[in-house]
């Protein structure tokens, strides 16, 4: 559906996006993740044809954005980070304008209009001036604008930025629902959002892609150890000593003292060795019961930090 090859964008000396490659399949929700200033918006602006790239190609449904921009633009609904709203228009007039700008024919638009307004829940504010709407409603109008003309592809740049938690949940639900009928690229710097909504994640940092995978695969592959939390009844020093002797255990840290002779621990072990059974036997032998054992998978947050922070040497 969307193919991006060797996409590069330079501003003079600054390399905003460098050699970015990825594809998005039809019907997929792709998360585009990266810290602020990583090149997310630049990439999206290039895909939608707002700005040209320095080199590389973007193809949507087989059409190249440089060669056949109109064909590509017809297939994309774009919601930039700041929704492009005309404050002096009513919601309804604005959507009508968007429809005629996108050359949606009048009949189609008539049948589409109410569905879109219903979907993003703006039917009751359709006669109000956009100027007088709250941030949450403006965001929805921006999303409605992207949906005008039923484009196959939706590109949403930080769609939940500046919304309150309830609105965020609503918008996420909406995006998930839209994912059933659209191909979506969604950018965000908020990790739970991406793991909640997206099937696949592209992580970008300083203009370069650092990882592409499903959120689950990323946490599986990137951790080079497995982590557990355990609660064990018994004196902490003794327990620690015992666990350290088990083959495969790398690090033990006392997390909390829960009550007299009851502690919780974080245990890191080698990825390829299952240390749970030996731990059980060893503790049983000495009569220290395990009250809780839970494995911790590496969160997207850890992965993100691992991939996007590099330790700089201090001279």
């Amino acid at each position: 559906m969307i193919e991006i090859q060797n996409l590069t964008k330079h501003y003079g000396e600054i390399k905003a996006v460098e050699d970015v490659n990825f594809t998005v399949e039809k019907g997929e929700i792709l998360g585009f993740l990266g810290p602020n200033g990583a090149g997310k918006t630049t990439t999206m602006n290039i895909i939608t044809g707002y700005i040209p790239s320095t080199s590389g190609t973007v193809k949507v449904s087989g059409y190249d954005i440089m060669d056949q921009p109109r064909e590509v633009k017809r297939r994309i609904g774009y919601m930039p980070e700041h929704p492009p709203l005309y404050m002096d228009m009513t919601v309804k007039d604005y959507l009508d304008f968007s429809a005629s700008l996108k050359e949606v024919d009048k009949k189609t638009w008539k049948s589409q209009k109410n569905d879109i307004m219903e979907l993003v829940k703006i039917t009751h504010v359709q006669h109000r001036l956009i100027r007088n709407l709250s941030k949450g409603y403006r965001q929805r109008v921006g999303l409605a604008q992207a949906l005008v003309g039923a484009p196959e592809v939706l590109i949403l740049d930080e769609p939940t930025v500046g919304l309150d938690p309830k609105q965020i949940i609503e918008i996420r639900k909406l995006i998930k629902a839209l994912g059933k009928t659209h191909t979506i690229i969604l950018s965000s710097h908020i990790l739970p959002e991406v793991s909640a909504v997206c099937e696949r994640v592209v992580i970008i940092n300083k203009g370069k892609i650092v990882a592409v995978d499903t959120p689950e695969q990323l946490s599986k592959n990137l951790g080079d150890y497995s982590k557990f939390t355990m609660t064990i009844a018994g004196p902490d020093k003794k327990v620690k000593e015992m666990l350290q002797q088990i083959y495969g255990v790398k690090e033990i840290e006392v997390q909390n003292r829960i009550r007299e002779n009851e502690f919780s621990y974080i245990i890191e072990a080698d990825k390829d060795i299952d240390v749970r059974k030996p731990i059980f036997h060893k503790l049983a032998e000495f009569g220290y019961p395990i009250l809780e054992l839970k494995s911790l998978s590496m969160s997207l947050e850890d992965i993100f930090l691992q991939l996007t922070t590099e330790e700089k040497e201090v001279n």
Partner: peptide, 13 residues
């Protein structure tokens, strides 16, 4: 100023 330029430029016009 309002960012509506994005909407115009990314439309099929």
């Amino acid at each position: 100023k309002n960012g509506t330029e994005v909407m115009l430029v990314t439309s099929p016009v």
